[in-house]
Design a protein around this nucleic acid. Structure first.
Lengths: 347, 347
DNA sequence: TTGAAATGTGGAATTAGTTCCACATTTTTC
DNA sequence: GAAAAATGTGGAACTAATTCCACATTTCAA
């Protein structure tokens, strides 16, 4: 077994001090200026690098944060991760990534692996919280924060899907729409599949009886939305509400192919505020979520728990940004909405 | 200092054997069936979990792979990561992620951090290889693999940008185009900024003197491409070649706003094969790169180096897929290219 | 039936750090 | 000027595993 090139012992010998003194130099200080210089020189000369594992074994702090994500190849996950990293890196923390592939079982397995790995805390962009999740969190005594799902028994941080849906519902009601088709996803995704939809229905139907919302289920991708578009169209709504911008984009493509004009013949809206929504035509009206900000907040929150911060994070609600672009017709006034010639609301 | 709940010592005491025996049970075997049962039972009873750091300290193997990425919130990086993870996870390796923010200096710093962290190997989606990169790789004696850039002195894996550009050039030449504007990025990105462009010019101009290629520089995002679109249009080409699909999407938007029809009035192509390219209209003709496959190959390659595999990876070239969709007019035959009514070449 | 080989086993050393404690100085206070 | 406090320092213990080595059994062959 080959051994480490330079250990703290070598530095100590070269500097003519004890291991303890070098260790103190490395950590809290408490060393005379004279020896400090000697040690510094010895470290320079030897090119000493502290052994990560020996250090962690004793200190029981890894400066590693475990992150479990449902998938990697998605813009929202990328932005989330970007925000997380932005906060964690300057604090000297690093991230270990695991992918749950949208499976709650794999999610738990991943968390277990991370726990064994000795991470200081775990952040999970969850696909669904189970009782087991709650139990494990307690058993491990490890700070765990969930994003994307909500449960009172654990730390979590989530976009207010109901509010986002509601906001869109109110907007479309004000624009004079009466019949909407909600192109949504499976109800097993509580946040997107249920909350967002219910919120929309509430906002859209509030205080009137002549409103109608149909529901068609699709997947999260363009293609499955595109494939459902004919059925959606057949229902004859004045507006199609895609549960995500991707869904709306697939539907937009279908309408384009059939010569159905948007928004003149039918309106289309989405959720997410993806960048591409601004570059397609008509540019997509949407409720934008700031996933990068969410990542930053999540990381800060986690750090706060980690430090025993009873400073109780106060500002945990995620702001929603309504992005009005070109894909909705104002039926109330029988005029088109603002149709800017420059790239609308591009981020 | 709180200590670990259950150590190998506790298990040994409970099972009535020595620590060594438990360790052997955990690792190579070499233990009698009788004691094996006892140890198994003791581990079950105590819920023993091996201490990651103590183990790593002794074995000098972390089962951790460091990954340095230029940024997180990009589809290509997401796919790459997805491929990497797909190979690494089943092999029991986990990834530590660091972001270089497109800076070569930060890239080196990140690599250094990972090295200190005791990772078994490093994978870098590099933004530019320097002499320092090569020096460090030797100094550390750690397997390092670069993707996205090429250098004979180190292990690397890269899309053949020149070939991709060439392919597109040949295609457009065959389609009868004579005047192209290449909307490219800064030459400091050797792969995209130089190789892809030069490859295109070669393929486009090959064997004729009546071809002309103008160059306009933009950023990587929709917006900066959109902002350069007027200048591009002024040059009056028959086709605009975006160095990435995003650039082409921004240009498409501009043309749409001005009522310039694509491909009837002007053709537009891109590189990358992003999913959205299939859903916009006209669907974008492009050279698709399989970044997920690249991630998988990169991870396999790295594992191979790690295992001292002199099995010399042979199949390192990345396949290119030419995706002909709707955004190019065939000037040679004065007819439109295949215009499918279903979602073209959607992945 | 003896010697050799195979099979287990435990003790002790090892890995590379941190930290507690005792003790020597030096500085401050009364 | 003595006692008290502050400041450094090194030795030894400790962290939780793996692994080498010596030694006891047991099995097998001659």
């Amino acid at each position: 077994m080959e051994q480490q090139k330079v250990t703290i012992k070598d530095v100590a010998d070269l500097a003519g001090v004890s291991k303890s003194t070098v260790s103190r130099y490395l950590n809290n200080g408490y060393i005379s200026a004279e020896k400090q210089a000697k040690v510094r020189k010895a470290i320079e000369q030897t090119g000493f690098q502290s052994n990560f594992f020996a250090k962690r074994l004793k200190t029981r702090e890894s400066k590693l944060i475990g992150i479990v994500l449902p998938r990697m190849d998605s813009v929202t996950v990328g932005k989330l991760l970007s925000g997380i990293t932005r906060v964690l890196e300057p604090e000297g923390y690093q991230s270990i990534l695991l992918v749950s592939q949208l499976s709650s079982k794999k999610e738990l397995e991943s968390m277990q692996k991370l726990q064994q790995q000795g991470v200081d805390a775990i952040l999970v962009d969850s696909v669904g919280l189970t009782a087991e999740h709650v139990r494990r969190a307690q058993e491990w005594g490890l700070p765990i924060l969930y994003t994307g799902q909500k449960n009172a028994a654990v730390h979590c941080l989530k976009i207010d899907d109901a509010a986002a849906g509601h906001r869109m519902g109110v907007y479309l009601r004000q624009m004079g729409h009466k019949h909407a088709v909600f192109a949504g996803v499976t109800e097993s995704d509580e946040a997107v599949g249920i909350e967002r939809k219910e919120g929309f229905i509430a906002g859209f139907c509030e205080g009137r009886t002549d409103a109608k919302v149909d529901f068609v289920e699709t997947g999260f991708d363009f293609l499955s939305a595109y494939n459902q578009a004919a059925e959606i169209h057949k229902l004859g709504p004045s507006v199609v509400v895609g549960a995500t911008d991707n869904i709306s984009l697939g539907i937009l493509r279908y309408f384009h192919e059939r010569g159905v004009r948007v928004p003149e013949d039918i309106s289309v809206v989405g959720f997410g505020g993806y960048d591409v929504g601004a570059v397609v035509y008509p540019a997509l009206t949407t409720v934008a979520f700031d996933y990068e900000l969410m990542g930053m907040k999540a990381a800060s929150y986690l750090l706060n728990i980690l430090r025993g911060g009873e400073a109780e994070m106060t500002n945990l609600d995620m702001p929603l940004l309504f992005v009005e672009r070109e894909s909705v017709q104002n039926l109330a006034k029988k005029t088109l909405p603002i149709n800017s010639t420059s790239l609308p609301a591009m981020m």
